[in-house]
Design a protein around this nucleic acid. Sequence first.
DNA 1: GATGAATGAGCGTTCATTCAT
DNA 2: GATGAATGAACGCTCATTCAT
Lengths: 211, 211, 211, 211
Amino acid sequence: MNENDTVPTSKKTTPARRAELLALAAEVFAEHGYRATTVRRIADEAGMLAGSLYYHFDSKESMLDEILTGFLDDLWARYDAVLAAGLGPRETVTELVTESFREIDQHRAAVALYQKETPHLAGHPRFSYLADSRRKFEEMWLGVLRRGMADRSFRADLDIRLAYRFLRDTVWVAASWYRPGGTHSPEEIAGQYLSMVLDGITPRAPRAPRP
Amino acid sequence: MNENDTVPTSKKTTPARRAELLALAAEVFAEHGYRATTVRRIADEAGMLAGSLYYHFDSKESMLDEILTGFLDDLWARYDAVLAAGLGPRETVTELVTESFREIDQHRAAVALYQKETPHLAGHPRFSYLADSRRKFEEMWLGVLRRGMADRSFRADLDIRLAYRFLRDTVWVAASWYRPGGTHSPEEIAGQYLSMVLDGITPRAPRAPRP
Amino acid sequence: MNENDTVPTSKKTTPARRAELLALAAEVFAEHGYRATTVRRIADEAGMLAGSLYYHFDSKESMLDEILTGFLDDLWARYDAVLAAGLGPRETVTELVTESFREIDQHRAAVALYQKETPHLAGHPRFSYLADSRRKFEEMWLGVLRRGMADRSFRADLDIRLAYRFLRDTVWVAASWYRPGGTHSPEEIAGQYLSMVLDGITPRAPRAPRP
Amino acid sequence: MNENDTVPTSKKTTPARRAELLALAAEVFAEHGYRATTVRRIADEAGMLAGSLYYHFDSKESMLDEILTGFLDDLWARYDAVLAAGLGPRETVTELVTESFREIDQHRAAVALYQKETPHLAGHPRFSYLADSRRKFEEMWLGVLRRGMADRSFRADLDIRLAYRFLRDTVWVAASWYRPGGTHSPEEIAGQYLSMVLDGITPRAPRAPRP
DNA sequence: GATGAATGAGCGTTCATTCAT
DNA sequence: GATGAATGAACGCTCATTCAT
């Protein structure tokens, strides 16, 4: 997924400076949107001139690319670890959601960017990995939901595709308001979300504890 | 809220043509984003030249303005009717969510546009009504949630601000994937969403029917 | 050869204005070279701003394209007429050279541009017709030279490829110094050139008049 | 003519390294044109970074300058030797053309560069020696042609200025297609060219051998 | 009501050049 | 002698907007 592993596009810079600049660019992209963000603005924020950015990156687009692939690589490392643990459906959902909030906590800008720009990037060949990731994402969630419905972890009357979209969106939109270093840790927020998603916002009688 | 009621910007046109053009613009804005949409693209779609649009509208921004105010006017008419009905908290939530999905069904483009562009428009004086609406929105939801927690319609252990964001986002993001004329009616989708939000995705023992 | 016959790229402008602008661009391109010519310079010369040129043309490159195809279309119309006349080798050479000088007289800038830029444009797919034309050109000259050597119109000891290059270059470089409206008509210059090329610059005994 | 003799621009480098780099630069300039050649491209080819070239040369322009003066110095050394030999007009022309082809053979890139860039450099004070050389060139050729017409070595009916341009261009354009190490030696090519120029491409009766 | 042609500001990008290390 | 990182001016191009017709 990360083309940098195989095709180091422009490694003329130290990785540290690259990462710095990229984090900055992600922040600005996330705040104003990719299109509305001028390369001059990023350069300003970095204390350099617009042209100087091109020493480090090939283009504005390649900055976006690198931010997005970095994010997805990291995210899938988390998800794959969860999936490899062989947990039950409810625990898998719990862990997936928690890892998602951890990702939001650590790469908020990239997540927000991903949310906002993916639709426009869909058709672009360079960003085909976004559609690939989306597919994997869908399969993952649909799979865990199906397994959960089969073993009665989840309600049998769910419209599975609707439930998938519900779960997917519910988690990610949090990136639009979440600010790291707030009063709640990502784990706490994940806990609250899971509580609402799993048990609903209306009171329920105490369930028997699960094995 | 709708400045056209008091300050008719460009009344040279018939309201019908305006509405036509606006619906078209909303569609294009929603698909490609406001910034990425060129005025020429809208004109193309309308079968005219870019310059000709300026007979009907003052600027690209005023089109956006008109679309957004139209949407909010319509939405608040719906919400105000629900609030005026004096229903209980659970029923109020049910009706608010249902009306939201009806709004998505009827003005999908405007809703998507609102979702996508509001953050960037926040500081802009011309669009201060967006922040106003957001405030009203928040008060409305916080109010109904509080009342529900007070009368035990909703769980007492909810983090109310988190629950508010959860509800708010959960509903609106549906505009990003919803396509009118699909297999589900807006009421059906609302029903499914409400079922998940109110009761969670895990099975619960049958509750006593509410009066 | 002329894509405008089949694919009218950007006929948004009146052909007259296009032609005017194109002639102007050709002049500037020819004087300073294509790369060294800024689009602002052309616009200046046309009394407009750089951006305004893009109402008439898609790009700087498309201006070059249009100039070049226009030139080649015109040139080949001339050559084809000569070839269709079925003249003997010496007369064919005479007419081809004369038509070449007429072309230089009427489209000096385009010819100079063609001479100067063709090498750099060779690999570019959009300008593949340049290589095509070059091939046709070579076949044409090689053909007439061969026929002339066969029927003793031309010396039998010529290195035919060298003679081809000699003829080809000799004619076209004139575009670099020729100025229309000078003391010599294109026909006179063609006559002088032909006299040197056919008979050499050293005196020769009078030849028997040809039939 | 060579300002390096009097004003050593950047003597920080060994002449050997300079010459190496210059030959390389000439090659790249000749292939892509001076403007279109980036200093980085030259550096790449030399296995260094763009900035490093500035240790050896003051500027891109000074590289061009040095290449051109080197070429002209060499060429005029050849021509002056020929002129000093006191040959007859026909033999002088023969030798001048032959030396020209030898120059092309040995400094093809510089010749091609000279041909291509001289027109644009005309007005530039730094390159005024190009115009000087051109003048000397013209005087030389006009002189030998005049002498040849006077002593009947050349035809009396020639337009002398046209003949001058014809000779001048005819020789130099060969630099655009000539590749050293081909099947023909420069002397052979010179012979063929001279044969065409002196005697024409049509057969002539055998001339009485010259004294 | 709409067109054709233009404006002018700004955008992403390139590139010769500089300079501390 | 060479590098890494930056500058700053200019370039081709886009686009919202204007306005006479």
